[in-house]
């Protein structure tokens, strides 16, 4: 360990054992470090295992999922921590911002109490102190009139407001790491940038490290410090945000960036978007070679024979592609 990492994931695999059929390896040997105050983006499409990764970091996977590998958080190995200690950690040290704010807030509990519940679970505060803290948190996530929001039920709030409540919940105990699983996936384009701005502000003010998961490079642009690109359960490329956006190395990343840029520049009507042909492989039946090989425009013979090992074309960059070595 050269630097002090906040969390260090090493060779993490998660396997879902379905009753029928083959076990599915949703996350396959992932290693990743996050430093304190760092924002790391996980870029990948649905089904690539990114949400499973988020669950695994919190040690919160559905029954039937088996995880192997190591997750070292502040010197604590989460993989062999008993459930009680994990519970004390969740929300206190590592907090999750879920994907769909319409589903992630309990419909019969008011927003204020929902946030207060997190405080109650971790901090010895009196009811009055808790109430006060909740109001501060509500201001912090951008509500002008916290009293009104405090007693509002989730169904009385808009999508953007709900996501702010979820962020306030996650930030309640000032965790060291926020895990945000597609925090803007279900929001309008306008609201997306607001939420991203809020998360930026939180990092600035509290030095919270953030692991943000998204399928959309545009969300991560200008927000995350480092980006890990995931494809079919594996990380295929890691680099600083500038490197990944400016000079993507893996053909998948390159294609993804072309697509994303074609969708955000308002350069007039086009007759075709750049695209990647085909679909990502079914996680149930993964072939021997590079998982992107069937869709890759630069495939070589070796690509279908074995999985490319990790190459380090530059000191800070990792890429799994035979283009960068043999």
């Amino acid at each position: 360990m050269a630097r002090d990492h906040l969390i260090r994931v090493s060779d993490l695999s998660v396997t879902y054992c379905a009753d029928e059929g083959m076990p599915i390896r949703a996350v396959d040997g992932i290693s990743l470090e996050i430093s304190p105050q760092e924002i790391v983006g996980i870029l990948g499409e649905s089904g690539c295992g990114k949400s499973t990764l988020a669950g695994a970091l919190l040690r919160l996977l559905p029954p039937g999922a088996k995880s192997e590998g190591g997750i070292l958080f502040r010197g604590l190995e989460l993989m062999n921590l008993p459930e009680a200690e994990l519970r004390a950690l969740r929300g206190r040290e590592i907090a999750l911002i879920p994907q769909d704010p319409a589903l992630s807030l309990n419909p019969v509990i008011t927003a204020g109490v929902l946030i207060g519940e997190v405080l109650r679970a971790h901090l010895p505060l009196s009811a009055a102190e808790r109430r006060q803290r909740v109001k501060e948190l509500l201001c912090e996530v951008g509500f002008d009139r916290p009293e009104e929001i405090y007693s509002a039920y989730p169904h009385q709030l808009s999508g953007g407001q709900r996501q702010r409540i979820a962020i306030a919940q996650a930030m309640a105990c000032r965790p060291g790491l926020l895990v945000a699983d597609e925090p803007t996936g279900k929001l309008d384009a306008t609201l997306q940038s607001e939420i991203i701005e809020l998360l930026s502000k939180i990092r600035q003010q509290h030095g919270t490290a953030i692991l943000i998961i998204s399928h959309d490079p545009a969300i991560l642009a200008g927000f995350s410090d480092r980006i890990a690109v995931m494809y079919a359960g594996r990380i295929v490329e890691v680099g600083s945000s500038a490197e990944i956006f400016g000079r993507p190395l893996h053909p998948y990343t390159q294609a993804l960036m072309r697509i994303a840029s074609s969708m955000i520049t308002s350069a007039g009507v086009i007759s075709r978007f750049p695209a990647i042909a085909g679909e990502s492989p079914d996680p149930g039946c993964i072939a021997e070679g590079c998982r992107f090989e069937p869709r890759c425009s630069e495939r070589m013979d070796v690509c279908s024979q074995r999985y490319p090992q990790t190459f380090l074309p530059e000191p800070s960059r990792l890429v799994n592609c035979f283009k960068y070595g043999e």
Binding site: A189, T190, Q192, S193, P217, A218, A221, G222, F223, S241, A242, E243, F245, G246, R247, M257, A260, S261, I264, T265, S266
Partner: peptide, 16 residues
């Protein structure tokens, strides 16, 4: 909001 995103994207892809 679309332009902000586009600007961020252009900034980061254009000038590594």
């Amino acid at each position: 909001s679309a332009k902000t995103t586009a600007a961020k994207f252009a900034a980061i892809t254009g000038a590594p």
